Simulated scan of single mutants.
Amino acid sequence: MIEAVNIQKYYDDLQVLKGVDLHIKKGEIVSIVGASGAGKTTLLQILGTLDAPSTTPTTSLKINGENVLQLKDKALSKFRNLNLGFIFQFHQLLPEFTALENVCIPAFIAHKNKSETEQEATRLLEYLGLGHRTHHKPNELSGGEQQRVAVARALINKPAIIFADEPSGNLDTVSAENLHQLFFDLRDEFGQTFVIVTHNEDFANMADRKLVMVDGLISN
């Protein structure tokens, strides 16, 4: 599902990633932990094609069999939109749109049918326990509800992989636990692969595999 070889990243003279090799299987839930500055978010952004690695002759990144480092910008954007979903610590919902409209946005970007998209978005929101909140705007929702809307948005295009960066970092304990369980339920129901950066050790230990990053490398 994800095959990364010799992933390096420099910011000027600072080397943040020092040659990460990683293989993640389909349907696997992988957590990435480590101290601040270890390179977790940088790695996640590169795996999610939001950033590019520093190029070396041996660097490669294949996702679902596609060598994404060889894609031009437009093709890469299309690949990302259709194959990858993203959940961030701060939900990044657009405040002027309803929950339903926020969920639909990635599908509209992919030029999918409006009626079918709205039906699918409604189904996802109902699955996530938000069927009664579809027409509420983000400021009318609790933090946990906002994050579940963001989860629905990440799922709308039925992506093969969901990348999450501290998805429960801004939630209370109960909402965080509910979100964590939701990821496992989604994997079991839809077969998606999850790659999750987290500081929550309990959640990290629940994953199928926990990767510990130390100073730009995976230590285990």
Results as ranks from 00 to 15, higher is better:
residue 85 G to Q: 07
residue 86 F to W: 05
residue 87 I to S: 01
residue 87 I to E: 00
residue 88 F to K: 07
residue 88 F to T: 13
residue 90 F to E: 14
residue 90 F to V: 15
residue 90 F to W: 12
residue 93 L to N: 02
residue 93 L to Y: 05
residue 93 L to W: 03
residue 96 E to M: 00
residue 99 A to W: 04
residue 100 L to S: 01
residue 101 E to S: 03
residue 101 E to D: 08
residue 101 E to N: 01
residue 102 N to R: 04
residue 103 V to W: 01
residue 103 V to T: 00
residue 105 I to W: 05
residue 105 I to N: 08
residue 107 A to M: 01
residue 107 A to G: 03
residue 109 I to G: 05
residue 109 I to Q: 04
residue 110 A to M: 08
residue 110 A to N: 08
residue 110 A to D: 10
residue 110 A to S: 08
residue 110 A to P: 03
residue 110 A to W: 05
residue 112 K to A: 10
residue 113 N to E: 15
residue 115 S to D: 15
residue 116 E to M: 10
residue 116 E to H: 11
residue 116 E to S: 13
residue 117 T to G: 07
residue 118 E to P: 00
residue 118 E to C: 04
residue 119 Q to D: 13
residue 120 E to Y: 08
residue 120 E to P: 01
residue 121 A to F: 11
residue 122 T to K: 09
residue 123 R to K: 15
residue 123 R to P: 09
residue 125 L to C: 03
residue 125 L to N: 00
residue 125 L to E: 01
residue 127 Y to M: 13
residue 131 G to R: 09
residue 131 G to S: 15
residue 131 G to K: 12
residue 132 H to A: 14
residue 132 H to C: 09
residue 132 H to V: 13
residue 134 T to E: 05
residue 136 H to Q: 12
residue 136 H to T: 04
residue 137 K to L: 14
residue 137 K to R: 14
residue 138 P to Y: 09
residue 139 N to V: 11
residue 139 N to Y: 10
residue 140 E to F: 12
residue 141 L to V: 08
residue 142 S to R: 06
residue 143 G to T: 07
residue 143 G to E: 03
residue 144 G to F: 08
residue 146 Q to D: 10
residue 146 Q to E: 13
residue 147 Q to T: 07
residue 148 R to G: 02
residue 148 R to E: 00
residue 148 R to Q: 03
residue 150 A to G: 07
residue 152 A to M: 04
residue 152 A to C: 02
residue 153 R to D: 06
residue 153 R to W: 08
residue 154 A to S: 13
residue 154 A to F: 04
residue 155 L to N: 04
residue 155 L to S: 05
residue 156 I to H: 02
residue 156 I to E: 00
residue 157 N to K: 06
residue 157 N to R: 10
residue 157 N to P: 11
residue 157 N to D: 10
residue 158 K to V: 10
residue 158 K to E: 13
residue 158 K to F: 08
residue 159 P to M: 06
residue 162 I to M: 06
residue 163 F to N: 02
residue 164 A to H: 13
residue 165 D to V: 09
residue 166 E to T: 12
residue 166 E to K: 13
residue 167 P to T: 14
residue 167 P to S: 10
residue 168 S to G: 15
